[in-house]
Amino acid sequence: MLDVRSILSILASNIKATGLPVPAPREALYSWSEGLSIPKDGDTLLYTGGLYQLLPYIEVYSSQLAKLEDKRSGGLLLRAAGRFSSLSRIAGAIVRPSKREVEESKRILQSIVRLLDAAGVRVAYRREVDGYSGVLLYDMGLDDDFKKHFAQVARSLAQTGARTIVTVDPHTTHVLRSVARRLGLLPELEVKTYLELLAENIDNINFKKGRAGTAAIHDSCLYARRENVIAQPRLLLERAGYQILEPRRSGRLTYCCGGPIESIAPKLSSRIALARIGELADTGAERIATMCPICLANLKRASRTAGGPPVVDLSLLLAERLEA
């Protein structure tokens, strides 16, 4: 059985020490942008929040935690590590993410930039400003740590002079647009997801003609229920030529992938993921479209276990339909 308080203290001490929830090199955040010519200044600033980039590291980290869950000594090791804040060092040496996953996360972010460009939306990007939003701290109830961490995020965003922040995942979007605003932590910055920007400018996008196959859509809970991002992914997929198949539970009543409790209760989390992948597969779709890195990782794993269809990030599905 995992010792949850230890997980929390490991999480908090990782973020305090490095700004990141898991031991990962800082360049993991921005290496996707190398070789791309994105301006550093502009009204519209891309802030990735780091979730896509960190997920391959989080994956390895939590699978190590899951293994510990089954070992009697695991709790002890974790407790000790938590107490001495040393697991980050222990784990720093052993977190080696899958190369394929790292490459995929880079392709996702590169696709998002390509799509925005195709839609005529000019974004700026600053690797020194990009970072982790601290969403896990907030989700786990570590409010003081979150506020401290986010104050820095807000300061560096404000210093760029941008007026609109473009986000790429639902968790970062929710933290920036709803949580930070409610807590009075973010100055008057407009926050938009790339999906909203693409949908607003859809007539500019030149998609390939013809059919692209079928895709079952997995709405993100935060997008669908908190941020009202439901119509946009559908509009985009449809214009890109996909036939959209809706699972039994979709839109406002979409179903969680189980991801948020993965580090606390891995077995329970994976049961939920399996239930969800089952109904997504039941649509008979060739591929499953997700729009959140946590959903992507969790459902991909579940689909492998259940022998379901491939789970693909929405941005990749859209980008492969762009005219060259």
């Binding site: 949850v4 989700d139 786990m140 109830g141 809970c221 229920r225 009543l253 409790i261």
Partner: peptide, 30 residues
Amino acid sequence: MLCLNCGRCDAVCPVEIPLSRLIRNLKKYY
């Protein structure tokens, strides 16, 4: 701590209790 904070409960509650927000607030005490 076992709540996903997915907000499905909020969406169906007849008297609009913001269950997931209240539960997240409880996580603070943990």
